[in-house]
Design a binder for these strands. Structure first.
Lengths: 248, 248
DNA sequence: CGAACGTTTGAGATGACTCAAGCGTTGTGG
DNA sequence: CCACAACGCTTGAGTCATCTCAAACGTTCG
C-alpha cells in the first residue's frame, strides 16, 4: 500500500477504500533515488507526479547566484508535485534530500480520475491546498519570527506531520537533515542555526543530534515558535496511529 | 461580466464561453465593501467563496501579539478564497484593503460544477495553484532578498498581474496602498519601507506617490528584485489587452 | 590515513529595527 | 472658512539580530 499515508488523518477527506484502490492502480512505477538529486527542473513540461513513500524531498527556487531557497519539505505520504498535474510546468525544482522511495503517477491516470471520480478529485485538490497552507505558515515564520522561533516552528511542524504519518511519537523522530539543510529551510546561515540549536539545547526545549530530533518540552517549543497546527488540517478526532509503530 | 478578468491570459486554461457562462450563473450576489474590513476569520466554517471584481484584498495571519503577516494580496480577477471550497475552514483571515466589489459564489454551485464539468474544475484547481506559486515566490522574496529587493520584487509582481488584468500599461498603475501596507506585505517596518522608496526614487527605478506607481526602468527594477514572471503562469502568446475585446 | 563533510566557536561588520520628532495632506466640525 | 485632528510620510540617532569571514574540531568512510 504505497498510498497508505496519503491524506491520512486529514479532516473530512480521508480516502474511501475504493478511492485508495483507484489511486494505487494509478501508480505506474516505484523508484528508489539517491540523496540530493534534482528530479524535476523548473520550466520543463511534466506528465507525471510523484508520491513520496519513504524519505524526505524538497522543493526550492534558485536565486541568480545559485543559492537555493527551500519552499517546501516533503515527508512520507506527501504527493510532492501533484500540483504539476493542473500546472503542467513547475515554477521551482524538486529534489531528494535523503534517499527516497517514490511512486510515479502518470497525469493520464489523473485525467481519468477527474473524469470519473469527482469526490476523489476534490480530495486531490484538497491535498494541494494543504501544501499551500503550509506555504502560508512558512511566510508567517519568515515574516514574524526570529531565528530561534523559526527553527522551533519548523521542528514543531515537522513533528506534527510525522505524528500524522505514524513516524513520530510526538517527542522523538528521525530526521535525516543537516544544520545546513535547516538553514536553507529557515532562511538562515548554517552558522546561526548552530547557535540556535545550542540555545534550544541549553533551554531544554529540543535536542537535534545525529539525525535524531528529541523534543524535550513540546509545549514551550510550540510557544517559542508560535506554532498552531490548525493549518495542517489534521483531524484530531482520530487519535494516534496504532498501525505502524513510530521509529526512533 | 463579473468573471471577465478571472483566468485571463493564464497559459492553456482560459475559460471557454460555456464555462464562463456557467461561472457567471454560479454567482449568487454582488457586494461592495468598505476598506479595511475583515470578511473571513480563520477557523470559521464557510460555504461560499469570493471573486474579486474591483479593488484590493488581502489574506493574513496574526501572530500572538496581533501583528499581522500578509500572506497574499489579491487584485481584480482573483478568486480570493476559492481554496475555501475544498478546505471548508481557512487557516488565515481575509480582509479588504481598499473599497471593493466582490461576487459571491456558493459552494453548492461549485459542487455542481465539479460533478458536471471536470474541465472547468481543473481550471478552478489551476487557479488555486497559481496562488500557491505566488506564495512560493513570496517565500523566495523573504528568504533571499534584502529590503530593496523585496519591494522591487513585489512591485514587479503587482505590475505583471495588473497588466494581465488590463489595469496597468506596464509602467504606470494605480495602487491604493500605503507605505505601511507595503511594509506588512514585505515583512519590513514602515520606516524602512520609506527609506527603500527613497532609494528606488533616487536610483530612478520607481516612484510611488499618492497611490500611483510609476516604474521608470522595468528592466533594472526586475533585476534588482530578481523577478522572473514565470510563476504567474501568464500566457505571453496573447499580447497586450485591448481592454475587454474578445480575443480570436 | 587522508579527504570530505558537518559542527562548533570567535570576532567584527551590517542591514534593518526601535524610538523619537517633525512635516505635509486631508477631512471635518465649530 | 478656519482650526485642528487624524493619518501618512520623512528623517535622525542609536541598538541589535544576524551575517560574513576564519579557524578548529569531530566523524565517517573509502
Amino acid at each position: 500500500m504505497f498510498t497508505e499515508r496519503f491524506l491520512r488523518d486529514k479532516s473530512g477527506v480521508s480516502l474511501e477504500p475504493a478511492e485508495r484502490d483507484r489511486l494505487e492502480a494509478a501508480i505506474s512505477e516505484i523508484q528508489t533515488l539517491a540523496p540530493r538529486r534534482t528530479v524535476v527542473r523548473a520550466g520543463e513540461p511534466i506528465d507525471q507526479s510523484t508520491l513520496l513513500v519513504e524519505g524526505i524531498m524538497s522543493r526550492y527556487i534558485d536565486d541568480r547566484h545559485g543559492l537555493r531557497q527551500l519552499v517546501a519539505v516533503h515527508l512520507p505520504g506527501d504527493f510532492v508535485d501533484l500540483h504539476a498535474y493542473p500546472l503542467k510546468i513547475l515554477d521551482h525544482d524538486v529534489a531528494t534530500m535523503t534517499a527516497v522511495t517514490i511512486a510515479i503517477v502518470p497525469h493520464a491516470e489523473l485525467d481519468a480520475i477527474t473524469r470519473e471520480m469527482p469526490q476523489l478529485t476534490r480530495k486531490l485538490w484538497f491535498a494541494t491546498l494543504v501544501d499551500a497552507a503550509i506555504h502560508r505558515a512558512w511566510l508567517f515564520r519568515f515574516g514574524r519570527l526570529d531565528a530561534i522561533g523559526r527553527v522551533a516552528h519548523f521542528l514543531c511542524e515537522t513533528n506534527a506531520r510525522l505524528v500524522s504519518a505514524g513516524l513520530s511519537d510526538g517527542r522523538r523522530f528521525a530526521l535525516g537533515l543537516t544544520q545546513t539543510d535547516l538553514a536553507e529551510i529557515c532562511g538562515l546561515t548554517n552558522v546561526h542555526v548552530n547557535r540556535v540549536m545550542r540555545h534550544l539545547r541549553e533551554e531544554r526545549l529540543c535536542i537535534f543530534r545525529s539525525s535524531l530530533v528529541e523534543i524535550l518540552d513540546p509545549e514551550r517549543l510550540a510557544t517559542r515558535g508560535q506554532f498552531d497546527p490548525a493549518y495542517l488540517y489534521i483531524d484530531h478526532r482520530t487519535p494516534a496511529h496504532s498501525s505502524s509503530n513510530p521509529r526512533p
